[in-house]
Design a protein around this nucleic acid. Structure first.
Length: 576
RNA sequence: GGUCCCGUGGUGAAGUGGAGUUCACGCCGGCCUGUCAAGCCGGAGGUCGCGGGUUCGAACCCCGUCGGGACCGCCA
């Protein structure tokens, strides 16, 4: 039907007779003798000159045949890539008329309520922004496949109807018709299957896998999302990180044309000490400075004896942070479990302006100014508490005060390694809880601390972080039963209970599980950041709203009585 | 489960207790031979999300509800 795409016509095509197909982006009529029709396809827009009357309206689908010609002098349009040429002597065929769209099919719709965009997603996707995002996504998928295949990973598809597993995210359940009262679960990840593929000798597996989790939605979370899921046998942590790095770098290169610098590494401990979060945003400073030693002999009661005292310097923020906002920060710190928040403003004469300044000695004040390299107009925030609270509170305040939008460059990837094996304590059993999942391999250097100091045991577990967003995580797994038993013991899970809960998963390991480890990262998140979006809905063709509905199709909808009867399901009346 | 924000013609905004809800874009009709998300003239189009309350009077204040969003919890 067409010989060229709209956006590709250039000076080099002059004098050629061409046909283009697309949608009417706009028309400008100058009487019955002359009108301009801009035709759009996903490659761009070309101006077509019609010398007679045509009745075409916005978004009519047309095929236009004409001769490419240079535009008259003074009428080129520098805003259009095709702006040096136009189609003349046009014959217009209307392939389909169209209703006026509910919003303009261009960048003006960026301001349209997302409701409306989602209700008419097929029109939203017609826009350049969405076309670009979906094509970025396709490039990322393709580059990842290429990188994984070049490293001899084998793509294996795993089932979508799987058994419900005891731990982890809430699952979507699918009723069984053949066995009423029984349900499949939709997979929150292919974890079980990929590890069994290692037992099966696949050696290197990958899949661009759809994962489903019935947890509340966010800007960076959808019920369904895509992950690069991978697992390797006979591999060290370095092997896994290197393999995944290649996939990420290939994806970035495919879109930006630049290979990012080698992805740096940071231990979890260092991330918490310096950034106060396990997903540090390395694009800005305001790092946490340790002050515990400064106040080791302080008279100030709030600081004296505190396990960990740290602070951040919000450079130049003293002026804009009035009493109200500081009270807000304090309230947030307290809500997060801190006993309080100390703030000090550096005055023009270099002295510290703060309600607590009078409790601090001259030496302490001088040392503070020096540690933060503080100058007039700076705002220093200090928390004194248990180490984890001090870090978390300041990390949160640091992000609140300084973090740029996630898409803003430069891209700062970082591997966060050596996550703790256990995090927190189960309120009921008094036993440690797994930081990740109970199959993560403990750090070999910490094996002797297992029974004596379990909370200090590190795991061979790692996250990949980009601009403060967690892209994904992975670990080296436990492949031997004796080590697995020690972990279960530390978790307070008896052999009997372990067999009951996880036997289906662990029993196959008895047939010869190789040492293995893997990783999974979220493609939606990676694409969003590379595409310059701060919401993954912008890189998903048909996303759901925060309450989990699809505004275009109306899903979810109630089933009919026949469906329910077949499934042996009776629906309870809604709660009063 | 929680906190906060938003909801006014098709779209985006203005209107924070008082006459007929205002404007821009879009839409429809007319004019127009070089425009370019054209220009000029005219026109149509609104349950102010919904329900209740306060008031002489509510788009506006209060309560509830629905829809959407950001975040916390949650996401081993």
């Amino acid at each position: 039907m067409r010989t060229h795409m709209c956006g590709e016509l250039r000076f080099s095509e002059v004098d050629k007779t061409v046909s283009v197909c697309g949608w009417v982006a706009s028309r400008r009529e100058h009487g019955s003798q002359l009108s301009f029709v801009d035709v759009r396809d996903h490659t761009g827009v070309i101006q077509c000159v019609v010398d007679n009357e045509v009745d075409v309206r916005s978004e009519y689908v047309v095929r236009i045949t004409g001769v490419v010609r240079a535009r008259l002098e003074g009428t080129t349009n520098i805003n259009l890539p095709t702006g040096e040429v136009e189609l003349g002597e046009c014959v217009v065929e209307v392939l389909r008329t169209a209703e006026p769209p509910p919003f303009p099919i261009d960048s003006r719709a960026d301001k349209v309520d997302e409701n409306t965009r989602l209700q008419h997603r097929y029109l939203d996707i017609r826009r350049e922004r969405m076309q670009r995002n979906l094509r970025v996504r396709a490039k990322v998928n393709s580059a990842i496949r290429g990188a994984m295949e070049a490293q001899e990973f084998v793509e294996v598809e795993t089932p979508m109807l799987v058994p419900s597993t005891p731990e982890g995210a809430r699952e979507f359940l699918v009723p069984s018709r053949k066995d009423p009262g029984s349900f499949y679960a939709l997979p929150q990840s292919p974890q079980l299957f990929k590890q069994l593929l290692m037992v099966a000798g696949v050696d290197r597996y990958y899949q661009i896998a759809r994962c489903l989790r019935d947890e509340d939605l966010r800007a960076d979370r959808q019920y369904e999302f895509m992950q690069l899921d991978a697992e390797m046998s006979f591999a060290s942590q370095d092997d896994v990180l290197e393999a995944i790095s290649k996939a990420v770098e290939a994806a970035a290169f495919a879109v930006t044309g630049e290979t990012p610098p080698p992805i740096e590494r940071m231990t979890w401990r260092d991330a918490m000490e310096t950034y106060g979060v396990d997903k540090p945003d390395l694009r800005f400073g305001m790092t946490l400075v340790d002050l515990t030693d400064v106040f080791s002999a302080t008279e100030f009661k709030a600081f004296s004896g505190a396990a960990s005292i740290k602070g951040i310097n919000a450079s130049g923020k003293a002026e804009e942070m009035g009493r109200n906002k500081l009270d807000g920060l304090t309230a947030k710190a307290k809500q997060m479990g801190a006993k309080g928040l100390v703030w000090l403003k550096v005055a023009a004469d270099g002295t510290l302006d703060s309600p607590v300044a009078k409790f601090l000695s001259a030496d302490e004040q001088a040392e503070l100014v020096q540690r933060f390299a503080a100058v007039a107009g700076d705002l220093i925030l200090i928390v004194a508490d248990e180490w984890d609270i001090t870090c978390e509170v300041l990390g949160t305040l640091r992000n609140d005060l300084g973090r740029p939008p996630v898409w803003q460059g430069p891209y700062r990837y970082v591997w966060v390694t050596e996550f703790p094996l256990f995090v927190g304590v189960d309120k009921e059993t008094g036993k440690p809880k797994p930081g990740h999942h109970p199959f993560c391999r403990p750090h070999p250097e910490d094996l002797d601390k297992f029974e004596t100091d379990p909370m200090s045991v590190r795991a061979l577990a790692y996250d990949l972080v980009l601009n403060g967003w967690e892209l994904g995580s992975g670990s080296i797994r436990i492949h031997e039963s004796d080590l697995q038993r020690r972990v279960f013991n530390a978790l307070g899970i008896s052999d009997e209970e372990a067999d009951k809960k996880f036997g289906f998963f662990l029993r196959p390991f008895e047939y010869g599980a190789p040492p293995h480890g893997g990783f999974a990262f979220g493609i939606d998140r990676l694409v969003a950041i590379i595409a310059g979006e701060e919401n993954i809905r912008e890189v998903i063709a048909f996303p759901k709203t925060q309450s989990g509905t699809d505004l275009m199709t109306g899903a979810p909808t109630p089933p009919n009585a026949k469906q329910l009867a077949e499934l042996g399901i009776r629906v309870l009346p809604p709660k009063a």
